[in-house]
Design a binder for these strands. Structure first.
Lengths: 111, 111
DNA sequence: TGAACAGTTGAGAGATTGTTCAAGTGTGAG
DNA sequence: CTCACACTTGAACAATCTCTCAACTGTTCA
């Protein structure tokens, strides 16, 4: 019966996505899991913006925003394009808007 | 032109969700942003499980799992029902499965 | 050339997070 | 009652995170 129980547990384990996939999934959601990054992604859904503009909208330092943009870039959620001495940022992923919309729907339904 | 610029920034600010809403959104995504919690939510999509079973599936201590379950309970994503001396956990939110599916689709599309 | 501007980067402080370990609660079986 | 079992909880610790500050790169313009 120990064996039955182990099989039972093993079956569930086998049905789950691989650890690497789970890690990727968690990393993706982590991007949206910080208010500053969520706001940045929210802005960029409205229009492309440079770093200074994002900092103004959020009321934060350019440096703090730049640090978060680096993380979002690494996660391939935004991309930055140099235009003269500015860097214009835009969403780099079709899913970003949908994922945020879905989350917002959920949050707004909460009672 | 300072004024124009300020209005421009202000318009974007006004179009974003309120800070409280953004915080709720970030807190929601934070739930999925840890591999242990993501796995727990993954298991519970397959079937309801008690704490020991979840710990076995994940290969983690009962204590560690219980701590994470407390967080998921606080976030209203799972609920625990006492059955004798066990506690059976189940998903407490229709959106959980869809949000994870959407995230997985995204992750699997990545190249 | 050089000064001003836009942004990036690294170090470090303070806060938050996830796990372990030990102790605790509550339930059922003998 | 007492013991074993299933689970929860609090303290402690290391790892990670986010911001600030200062220094740095690169671009434009006079």
């Amino acid at each position: 019966m120990e064996k039955d129980n182990n099989d039972y547990i093993q079956n569930i384990r086998d049905a789950l996505p691989e650890d690497g996939t789970i890690a990727d999934l968690a990393d993706l959601f982590k991007m949206f899991g910080d208010p500053t990054r969520a706001k940045i992604l929210g802005c960029l859904q409205l229009r492309d913006l440079n770093v200074g503009e994002i900092a103004d909208v959020l009321g934060m330092s350019v440096s703090a925003v730049s640090h978060q943009l680096r993380i979002l870039r690494a996660g391939k959620l935004v991309k930055g394009t140099k235009e003269g001495k500015e860097v214009k940022y835009s969403l780099d992923d079709d899913h970003v808007t949908k994922i945020m919309e879905y989350g917002l729907t959920h949050v707004n339904e909460e009672r």
